[in-house]
Structures are given as structure tokens and as C-alpha cells.
Simulated scan of single mutants.
Amino acid sequence: MSVTALRILHTEASLGWGGQEIRILTESQGMQARGHQVWLCAPAQAQIYQKAAEYGVPASALPIDRKQLRGVWALRQWLKQQRVDVVNTHSSTDTWLAVLACLLLPKAIRPVIIRSRHISAAVNPSTLNRWLYGRAVKKVVTTGEVIRTVLCRDLALPASQVVSIPTGIDLLRFQPATTKPWLPEQFGFPAHAHVIGIVATLRSWKGHRYLLQALAQLLAEPPTQHCCVLIVGAGAGWQPLQTQIATLGLTGRVHLAGNQKDVVPYLQSMDSFCLPSYANEGIPQALLQAMACGLPIVTTAAGAIPELITHEKNGLVVPVKDASALAQALARLVQEPALAKTLAQTARQQALQQAGIETMLSKMESLMASVVSAASHGQDSVLPPQHTDA
């Protein structure tokens, strides 16, 4: 089914860089390839604004990192000039600013708003938030079904208001390698090392510190003394991890690679993948990427991860914040190569069937077209708050 070309604005108040920002830019690329016009508005100091050009996404720097009137006004002026069909917001601050900016526009040029919710952190069920999610925006998009269920429950939203559209990845890029792009020695590891990898922003809730504690336990046992950890990502946790590496005596066994534009060769150089998150996860892109690259996985049941990984079917799932359980699961992948191979193959097949970027793009395109069409038939794009409690 052909879709009329849309004019789409993404807004993002976050200054950081992670899966959320990567999804915005890759989705924007995909929509442009389908003939839609796409823009991004973000703070000048935001990493997504600074990286937008690399993805070919036109971006405007606006003061939308805080809930201030100047951000509302700047966004209103931008929208008045560009006349878009839909605004897709991604964080709390830019959602509130976009809603207020749209309310200040004449109805004839007022776009519809879609709120994307990428993480599983709880939303305060206040009257204002129930209005924001239930009436101010036309639809809420989550990256996992569990996030959708919790939002509907906590904010008393009708099931039709929230839709789950998991992130998709480029399956032509994320594939198993016939030979490793980089050998362990190139990361400063012993030649025979088993490389355990993680790709994640260095935030506390990603659980890096538990992975390092697990590594210390693995190195204390002869069957797993050859394990090392490759960490791809950057963020506020860099220095604490450096300190922990030194304290645990892991120097030479952990390599911090920082942010990488192309994580594929890093994934293809790993022997196993670990994501020990303990909170806030939606559907982590890094897990999808590891699955597509045919890596055996150890992770937790945080957020929407159980929608991807089933224990002993396509990965191993351990309790959150449990370094000993993490070490035991990682040791199994080292000591039971047949199990590791089966888990990896099953995970890759699932990724091939469910995780393609075109599936995500088609669902987002269909959703945006439907809400724009509904608005064009007389349904208000933004409904002002009512005085009665929802």
C-alpha cells in the first residue's frame, strides 16, 4: 500500500547518546529513503544533533533541553515556518514543549503528535501525565509490549492509545563473520582469550560493574582464566569503571573501546555477549545486533528483554545485580560450546524473522499516515486539558 509523502519532525531533548538516539536517526534515514521529508530538532549540545549530519538528517538547534518558555517559543516558530504533518517526540522535556508549542499554533497548521517511549522506567500517574499521554498526543509508541502494558495500566490509557513497535536493525550489516575482524591481541588480550563483549552506553543501570565483578570470579577458576571483556560505549560511567578495573586487578583483561560509529566489527570479534542491565530497558538494540551476529548471549529480565531472550532457548537469563549468577552463566558458554552454538543459532534465526529494520519502518509509516489522516478528517491534533480528573 502506497503512503502519501509525509513531513515528519523528530524532537529530542536528551544530550546523551545511546540506542534511543540511534533509533531516531536510523528511522529518519529509512523514512527519507521511502520518500518522506524528515527533520530533527535538538539542543545544540546534544550528541544526536552533532551526529545528525552523518546520517543525512537535517537538524536544527533549538533550546529544548529544559522546560522553559523560550523552548516552547522556538519550537512554535520552527513549526510555523516548516508546516510538518507529524511531530514525533522522544523524551519528557521535548514532549511537553512540543505539546505547548502546537497548542499555540493556528489549528489549520497544527501537526499531530506521536510520543515515543523507549525505556521501561515508570511514569508518574498524575493528572497532567494522563492528559499528556491520553489526549495531548495522538498515539504513544513503545519499544516493547511490557512497556505498553505498564503505561496503559499506570496511566489508565485505552489499549488503542499505545502501540508497541520494537526497534529494527539492518540485517545486511549485522551478520556473523567467517573470520574475526580483530584478534584478541589487538585489544591487548592474550592470544587464546575468550572475548566477552558488551555494547552499551556507560550508564549505571546497564550493569557494567556486575560484569567486571563476574570477570574477576571467572579469572579465579582454571576453566575460565582466559576470559576477557571488551566494552564498547562511552558515558558518565567511564571513570568509575576505570577505577573498578584497577581495584579488581583486571588491567590487561578489560578493553574500553569508547563509542564507535560502526560496532559491527567489534561484535564480530566477540565470542559471547553480555548485557547485565537491571532497569529501564526497552528492546535493547545491542541485543538485537548481537543476536543477528550469531553470538551466544547472557542477559537479565530487565524491562522488555524477556520479549527477546528466553532462558536456555536463545540465551541465558540471570537475576539482576547478581555477579555470581552472571559468572556462572558466562562460564557455561565457555565450558559448553555445543550449548553456546545452539543458543547463538536460535537467536540469529529469531533476529532474521523479527528484527528487520523494514518491519519497523513499515509499522511507523503506517501509524503516522493513519494519525495524519484522522486529523485531516476533523479530529483535533492536540486536545486541551479538561478541568475534570481523567
Rank of each mutant, 00 (worst) to 15 (best):
H377M: 05
L212N: 02
D271Q: 14
A355Y: 12
R209V: 14
I119E: 04
K67E: 09
L79S: 11
A191K: 15
A122D: 13
Q244S: 14
I109H: 08
V229A: 05
P184L: 03
Q213G: 05
L212M: 10
L361S: 05
P111I: 09
I165C: 07
R83P: 01
V263W: 02
K341F: 03
I147E: 05
A351L: 06
Q32V: 11
A98I: 09
V382P: 04
V382E: 05
L219T: 10
A375H: 01
T167W: 00
F273I: 10
Q20H: 12
P58V: 10
E12M: 12
L218E: 01
H255G: 03
P240T: 07
Y133L: 12
Q37M: 05
S92M: 09
P265I: 04
Q20V: 07
V141R: 12
K138M: 02
Q353H: 12
L241Y: 06
A301C: 08
V99A: 04
I283T: 15
I64G: 06
A122G: 00
V141F: 04
A200L: 09
W131Y: 13
L383T: 08
I22P: 02
Q335H: 06
G235A: 06
R83D: 09
K363P: 01
A279K: 15
D154F: 08
D85A: 15
V232Y: 07
L75A: 13
Q20S: 14
T201N: 07
T359H: 06
W96D: 10
F273N: 00
Q225K: 15
Q82A: 13
K321R: 15
A329V: 01
V263I: 12
L367N: 05
H255D: 00
H377R: 13
S2G: 12
H192C: 00
T388V: 15
S60A: 11
N314E: 03
A191H: 10
Q217L: 15
I165T: 08
L219S: 10
R148Q: 13
R148I: 03
L215I: 14
G134I: 02
A374D: 04
N88M: 13
T178D: 10
A327Q: 00
L62E: 00
S362I: 06
A374V: 05
L157S: 07
D154C: 13
Q186H: 10
Q244M: 15
A44R: 10
L97Y: 11
T224D: 06
T4V: 11
L69Y: 13
T201Y: 00
Q47G: 10
V254T: 06
R66F: 05
Q345E: 11
T178K: 12
I114H: 05
E21N: 04
S269T: 09
I198S: 06
S373C: 08
G282M: 14
G315W: 02
I8T: 04
P284Q: 06
L248Y: 11
P240S: 11
R70L: 10
I109C: 14
T143I: 15
R130K: 12
V112K: 01
K107V: 02
S28H: 00
R110Y: 03
